[in-house]
């Protein structure tokens, strides 16, 4: 495994109390593999990613337990200076909104080149040439002229390409993309996603794709991990999950995708709201919203059950995964 997250716990200590954002997440990704992490806002998918990258705001955030094994070593045990050298060089992150995530007052070429100046000790001139190369790599037209432009002078799709170029700069082994296409037009979304998938194949990188868009996932992901209230509730190869979900929450998510053959009908929605992270319900966190909930769900927290014994592994955190899969 390239990256393995084990039993990760993250809390945020605020004036109003402790918000438990991540409560024992396990997932892993191999070189060349794409793991999609799916979940509503507040499910802990971004916080997990930030903990892996080491860019959590500490305080108020705090990692209270677990391991992040990357190429065999536990990143959480590294000193900050060693950790910094991993960031950007060996694992990189692509953020959602490229306009606000790029520095508005620096030319994009400087921001790209900075990676080479800081991590590789290159001269500014060589770094500039590298920046042009990268921009061409992500197919930005007239890269040579545009390298001196500022982020606001690019279109949304081009800006996201620059973000991708920045993440790719030092050919990291792992890329974490946090909703990389959410802020883009639908037509551009596909282009950016295709580019990302293509580059991933080319460099054989591991990719963690954080999203709440089920449409994006189906095309590019190998595995899916569904998160709810800071836990993984289901994890499975992508085709299995679309065929037969093994968790009522996943089922609800899939049913709430609008479909063309249901024109005129009311859209399905999972009733209720995601739980307040300061007061996560006891037992299974999803039970207040679950159509299949029984008494045991209110008291006993379900473990991650092995749904099928063989590889590739499939897991579900539902006491009634069998019933879920059968109907």
């Amino acid at each position: 495994m390239l990256l393995e997250v084990r039993d990760l716990h993250v809390e945020f200590r605020t004036r109003d109390g402790v918000a438990k954002a991540v409560n024992g997440v396990d997932y892993g990704v191999d070189a060349g593999e794409t793991l999609a992490v799916l979940g509503e806002s507040g499910s802990g998918k971004s916080v997990t990613a930030q903990a892996i990258m080491g860019i959590l705001d500490i305080p108020p955030g705090r990692i209270t337990g677990g391991e992040v094994l990357f190429q065999g070593r536990d990143l959480l045990k590294l000193k900050e200076e060693e950790r910094r050298k991993v960031r950007g060089a060996e694992m990189a992150m692509i953020f959602q909104d490229a306009l606000s995530s790029l520095n508005p007052v620096l030319p994009v070429g400087d921001q790209l080149g900075e990676m080479f100046v800081v991590h590789r000790g290159m001269s500014r001139k060589d770094a500039r040439a590298k920046a042009v190369e990268l921009m061409e790599r992500v197919r930005i037209p007239a890269a040579k002229e545009r390298v001196k432009d500022y982020p606001h002078q690019f279109s949304g799709g081009m800006r996201q390409r620059i973000m991708i170029a920045m993440a790719l700069a030092l050919e990291p082994a792992l890329i974490i993309a946090d909703e990389p296409t959410t802020a883009l037009d639908v037509t551009v979304q596909a282009q950016v996603m295709d580019l990302l998938a293509e580059l991933q194949r080319e460099y054989n990188m591991g990719l963690i794709l954080i999203t709440h868009d089920l449409g994006v996932v189906a095309d590019v992901a190998d595995r899916i991990a569904v998160m709810y209230a800071g836990r993984i509730v289901e994890s499975a190869p992508v085709h299995d999950i679309y065929k037969v979900p093994a968790h009522p929450y996943t089922k609800g998510l899939l049913e709430s995708i609008p479909r063309l053959d249901q024109k005129g009908e009311e859209l399905y929605a999972i009733k209720g709201l995601p739980p307040n992270l300061m007061h996560i319900p006891p037992g299974c966190a999803f039970h207040p919203r679950c159509p299949m909930a029984q008494d045991v769900c209110r008291t006993d927290e379900p473990p991650l059950y092995e749904v099928n014994g063989e590889e590739p592994a499939r897991r579900s955190a539902c006491h009634f995964w069998r019933e879920c899969m059968n109907g």
């Binding site: 990258m53 860019i55 910094r84 606000s100 995530s101 790029l102 520095n103 800081v118 920045m166």
Partner: peptide, 21 residues
């Protein structure tokens, strides 16, 4: 802000994040 988070995620030294970004 997001661009400061990006700068940290790029693995820039703290001083560079503060001064330059």
């Amino acid at each position: 802000s997001d661009y400061v988070r990006t700068a940290i995620a790029k693995g820039l030294p703290r001083q560079r994040v503060i001064v330059r970004h």
